[in-house]
Amino acid sequence: MEPESTAAPAEITALVGREVYTNNGVFVGEIEDLRLDLDAEEVTGLALGRTNDELFDEDVRAARGVIVPYRWVQSVGDVVIATDLLEHLDDAERDGSETEMAV
């Protein structure tokens, strides 16, 4: 028999409005919505708005925002810390592949 948890479960909607930073302290954007896999009952991505203009090209700035894969999230607290998105963007440019970030 598993012990019962005394902590209240966190609401995933509590993530909305939090700022996302890279692990190097660079502001990425603000969480506006979540992408969910309802079958697996898990968060698969963070939909960001108010993104950092210095990180993203003109096409992204003209769009509504970006979706960061949740697997890139390292920690969640008052702010959300994600792996260095610049590394992911640079890797995609070097090998000619499409970045995993969606617009």
Rank of each mutant, 00 (worst) to 15 (best):
M1K: 10
E4D: 10
L86M: 11
T13S: 12
P3Y: 05
G25W: 09
L89M: 15
A82V: 11
I12E: 07
D84S: 10
G77I: 09
V79K: 12
T51K: 04
V73S: 04
L36A: 01
A40L: 13
V66K: 06
V26M: 08
G77W: 06
T44Q: 05
F27Y: 15
A47D: 06
A8C: 07
P69Y: 10
E58L: 13
G77P: 08
I31W: 01
G29D: 01
Q74R: 13
V43D: 03
V68W: 01
D95Y: 08
D57N: 15
T22A: 02
V16P: 00
A8R: 12
I31T: 08
L55R: 06
R94V: 12
G49I: 06
S97H: 09
Q74N: 07
V79A: 10
D59I: 05
E100Y: 06
I12D: 07
V68H: 02
S5K: 14
R35V: 15
G25Y: 05
S97G: 14
A82L: 00
R71V: 11
G96W: 06
V103S: 12
G17Q: 09
E2W: 11
G65Y: 01
E2P: 14
Q74I: 13
V60Y: 06
P3H: 06
A14R: 06
E54I: 07
T22M: 05
E58W: 09
G45L: 02
L38F: 14
F27P: 03
V68I: 15
A8T: 14
R35M: 05
D84L: 04
V103H: 10
E30F: 05
R35L: 08
R94W: 05
T44R: 07
D33L: 08
V79C: 03
G45E: 03
D95K: 11
V26R: 13
E58H: 09
A92N: 03
L38C: 08
W72Q: 11
D59A: 10
R35S: 09
A14C: 00
M101T: 05
A62L: 04
E100S: 13
R94H: 09
L34Q: 01
E2K: 13
V43F: 06
T44K: 08
L86V: 14
V43L: 11
T51I: 15
E54A: 15
A63I: 04
S5N: 11
R50D: 14
I12K: 12
L86E: 13
L86N: 10
E19C: 05
D59M: 05
A7C: 08
G49H: 03
M101I: 15
N52H: 03
F27E: 04
V43T: 13
V80K: 04
V16C: 02
A82R: 00
F27R: 08
G29P: 00
L34K: 02
S97C: 04
A62Y: 00
V28A: 02
P9H: 00
L48Y: 07
